[in-house]
Design a protein around this nucleic acid. Structure first.
Length: 127
RNA sequence: UCAGAUGGCUGGAUGGCCGCUUGGCUUCGUGGCUGCGUGCAAACGCAAAGUGCGGGGCUGGGAGGAAAGUCCGGGCUCCACGGAAACACGGUGACGGAUAACAUCCGCCGGGGGCAACCCUAGGGAUAGCGCCACAGAAAAUAUACCGCCGAUCCGCCGCUCUUUCGGGGGCGCGGAGGUGAGGUUGAAAUGGUGCGGUAAGAGCGCACCGCGGUCCUGGCAACAGGAACGGCACGGCAAGCCCCACCGGGAGCAAGACCAAAUAGGGAUGGCACGUAACCCGUUUCCGGGUAGCCGUCCGGGUAGGUCGCGUGAGGCGUCCGGCAACGGACGUCCCAGAGGAAUGGUCAUCCAUCCGUCGCAAGGCGGAAGACAAAACCCGGCUUAUAGGCUGUCUGACGCU
């Protein structure tokens, strides 16, 4: 399985759909995933979005949290994500202070758990 | 050297790996447009240049002094409006200047504070009018009443006393008429203050100085300052309670506004099919003719989602010179310097840099650890206000010491 390309989620409706999908949390972040609607999805692509609420802090802190999440996602998702799937990463207050290596582990474990849960729903086989 | 006052600048650095965004050049793919050729036509082929979309390569730019709060002033956009004025409402408020404009800035004046450098000041009008002045206090705006002081003058004669020519007269005391106005513990504020004279007691009643008032002179563009003689002193405070005066002001805001425009529903035009027996409408009625209502196609305009523009050459930055005490203005040269839209301008690691803590060392310093101010453009400018670790630096004042 080769590298997948990422599209950004920008519509509020997309975020709301992901909220109803599978959710897994860890100390540094929360992950929500769901299948991309067939009319929008493209082969070889997955979709990715970020959220940082006011709980994280002011504008400076929220921007920084989203950038850290983006860096982590850039490193992991193109290799481990599934195509035609939406991923939403939600920042938590600890996202700012958690060591980078720990943040990587958080995402990897959340991803594995969420994929396992999603499998019977979509009927897709694990590669 | 110490203490203090007041401006200006800055807002971590370097490198490795991995990324984002936006220009320029170049190249590849692809779509459409135009021209030429072949062809009856559909279509196919070729082509310089321009252009939409997608990808590669090279190269350049990419948060702030407050980007913040959204408190003022403008540009810009749309809406309203014949002009002007008045009224209402809102704002501003010593004077002179700067500016596109301002509640900003500069200079200056008045008042208050500080030994000083300097700091603070919403600083028009209280005889245009209304209103308010709590508590305390005798009294809070009108000059009195109350307590108090006096009782010179006049009256009474009540008491004591001196004198007597027995009519009375004098002195002291008492009461009254009356005089007096700031002495009365207050208060934010008390009807000018202090001193001397004066008086029965007192009082600007008189005088000196200070304060106050209008007049005149001098200086200043002006606010105002200084001086002179005069007036015996009237006019309490609050306008940030209403108000009066002077000046300024249409409203809403980039979610402004302009353009492109899917699906679905609906509107209009038009063509075809069906129905033309029934219903309704029109031509007076029957007949007859036309139309509406159904289905399908094409086109048109409005318009939602969505998209594009607005959106980066500007009251622009930097440098030199000139004018001005300054704010600022002028001339010349030079530069192009963020444009996102679930929102780019970064993530991570290492070293250095300052900061703090622990520890070792006489010391220079070594080792380990923590942590890196406030705060992120959202149409753009000029200000104000507020937040801000640390660092660099100019000028000035006072005290002490030395020469």
């Amino acid at each position: 399985m080769g590298k997948l390309l990422a599209d950004r989620l920008k519509k509020r409706a997309d975020f709301l759909r992901a909220q109803k999908g599978v959710r897994r949390s860890s100390a540094g972040l929360t992950l929500e995933i769901c299948a991309t609607p067939d009319t929008i999805g493209r082969d070889g692509h997955f979709r990715l979005g970020f959220t940082a609420s006011r709980k994280v802090g002011g504008a400076v802190e929220r921007n920084r949290a989203k950038r850290r999440l983006r860096a982590v996602a850039q490193a992991i998702l193109p290799l481990q994500a599934r195509e035609r799937t939406d991923y939403v990463l939600i920042a938590r207050p600890a996202t700012l202070t958690r060591p980078y290596a720990e943040l990587m582990k958080d995402l990897a474990s959340c991803l594995a758990a969420a994929h396992l849960k999603l499998t019977p729903l979509t009927g897709a086989g694990e590669p």
